[in-house]
Amino acid sequence: MNFTRARGAMSLAALLTTTAAAGTAVAYAQAPGLPGTPEAGGSKPAGSTTSKSAPKKASKTSSRTKVRSVRRNVTLGTRMLVKGTVSPKGAGRRVRLQVRTRKGWQSVAKDRTSKGGSFRLRYTPKSPGSLKTRVVFLGDSKHRSSRRTVGRVNVFRKAYASWYGPGLYGNTLGCGGRLSPGTIGVAHKSLPCGTPLTVRHNGRSVRVRVIDRGPYVGNREYDLTSATRSRIGFSGHGTVLTTK
């Protein structure tokens, strides 16, 4: 009997001792600031990562392209010239002269700026026409690109022409409508009706369209209406410049 009670008492004491020890261990594990705990700089929770911000790229400075002069009217075989500057000033900056085509903007001339930022772009067109042009600075590591519209540049060829009007007013035009004293346009034997072109004579130019058929005399290519020939100071028959 006494032996059994002693065994029971010992078992109870052992149980209390074990429970107390376990409680101390739990308290130790949860106590803040103790070595090995997150608060004390120990191991980090699973899944945590340290992010580093990417270095910022240096922002580029705005640039400005300026056209100072341009030769807008040239004859076929003559070189056109565009002068200008890129600011801020600096040498070696790449500049392009671009022409608008059916495939988009195409570069036809290039230059690098001088120390003062100036450039000179030269281009010899291979066919007549009215060219939409612009100048583009391509930009560099410190400056953004910029561009400037040059406008229309006319490339002319020589053509023999005459004019008509008085005595024919009221007649039906080959492309529709009727001829009047104020009608602006030209007659041509084969160019599609409505084709735009620029005609130049004595330093004066006029933008017109093909509105009639003819002329059918000699080697004349164009017949100018009376109003058209007045715009450029043309009389009789002779040579004019045309972009077609």
Rank of each mutant, 00 (worst) to 15 (best):
Q30K: 07
P32K: 10
P32S: 09
P32G: 05
G33T: 11
G33C: 03
L34P: 09
T37F: 05
G41M: 15
G41T: 15
P45I: 02
A46M: 06
G47N: 00
S48A: 10
S51R: 04
S53P: 08
P55K: 04
K56W: 00
A58F: 01
K60C: 00
S62M: 13
S63R: 03
T65H: 06
K66L: 09
K66N: 14
K66W: 02
S69R: 15
V70A: 13
V70W: 05
R71K: 15
N73I: 08
N73M: 09
V74Q: 05
V74M: 13
T75D: 11
L76P: 09
L76W: 01
L76Q: 09
G77S: 14
G77I: 13
T78E: 15
R79M: 13
M80G: 03
M80Q: 15
V82E: 02
K83N: 12
K83C: 01
K83E: 13
V86F: 04
G90M: 11
G90R: 06
A91W: 07
R93D: 11
R93G: 08
R94W: 03
R96N: 12
Q98I: 09
V99K: 03
V99D: 00
R100K: 04
T101S: 10
R102T: 12
K103D: 14
G104L: 12
Q106P: 00
S107K: 06
V108M: 13
A109Q: 10
A109C: 08
K110G: 01
D111L: 06
D111I: 11
R112N: 00
K115G: 07
G117I: 06
G117T: 12
F119A: 05
R120M: 00
R120Y: 02
L121H: 00
T124V: 14
P125M: 11
K126R: 05
S127I: 07
G129P: 04
S130T: 15
S130W: 07
K132V: 11
V135N: 02
V135E: 07
F137Y: 10
L138V: 13
L138A: 11
H143I: 02
R144I: 03
R144E: 03
R144W: 07
S146W: 00
T149C: 02
G151C: 13
G151W: 05
V153T: 09
V155K: 15
F156G: 00
R157D: 02
K158G: 00
S162R: 14
Y164I: 13
Y164T: 14
G165C: 12
G165L: 14
L168N: 15
G170H: 01
